[in-house]
Simulated assay, not measured.
Amino acid sequence: MAAPRNLMGDNGRLLRDEENGLGEDDSPTGKKPKSERFTLSRWEFVAAIGIFVIFSTGLFCIYLTMPAADYGKLKLPRSVSDLRLLKDHLASYAKDYPAQFMLGYCSVYIFMQTFMIPGTIFLSLLAGALFGVIRGLPLVVFNATAGASCCFFLSKLIGKPIVSWLWNERLRFFQSEIAKRRDKLLNYMLFLRITPTLPNLFINLASPIVDIPFHVFFLATLIGLIPASYIIVRAGLALGDLKSVKDLYDFKTLSVLFLIGFISICPTLLKRKKIYE
Rank of each mutant, 00 (worst) to 15 (best):
S124W: 00
E18P: 03
L239P: 04
K34Q: 11
R135D: 12
L239G: 07
F60G: 07
L154H: 01
L103K: 01
G136H: 02
F38D: 11
K252V: 10
G58R: 05
K34E: 12
S255F: 11
L242V: 08
S164L: 12
P196M: 06
I231N: 00
W43Q: 14
E18L: 15
G9P: 05
E36P: 01
M102F: 10
K184A: 09
M66L: 15
L192R: 00
Q175K: 10
I178A: 09
D10R: 15
G30R: 00
D17V: 06
G240Y: 01
L14N: 14
D96H: 13
W43G: 15
E177H: 09
Y71R: 05
I223M: 14
C106D: 03
F52D: 00
L186H: 02
G50D: 02
F251V: 15
S41C: 11
S264M: 10
K75L: 11
H89Y: 08
A48L: 11
A99V: 15
Y63C: 10
H89G: 04
P28Y: 01
L15C: 13
L103M: 11
D82L: 07
I49T: 11
F55A: 10
S164Q: 09
I162Y: 02
P67D: 05
A3H: 11
G261E: 10
G128V: 08
F142I: 13
A179N: 06
P98W: 04
T221G: 06
F122P: 00
R234W: 07
C106N: 02
V216Q: 02
Y188G: 03
G12L: 14
I121Q: 05
L269H: 08
F262E: 11
V140T: 06
Y63H: 12
F191I: 04
V133M: 07
W165D: 14
L130G: 06
A179V: 09
N11Y: 14
S244W: 07
L222T: 06
F111S: 04
E44A: 15
L190P: 02
E24Q: 05
L225S: 10
P196W: 00
D211P: 05
L15H: 13
L185W: 00
L126Q: 01
W43D: 13
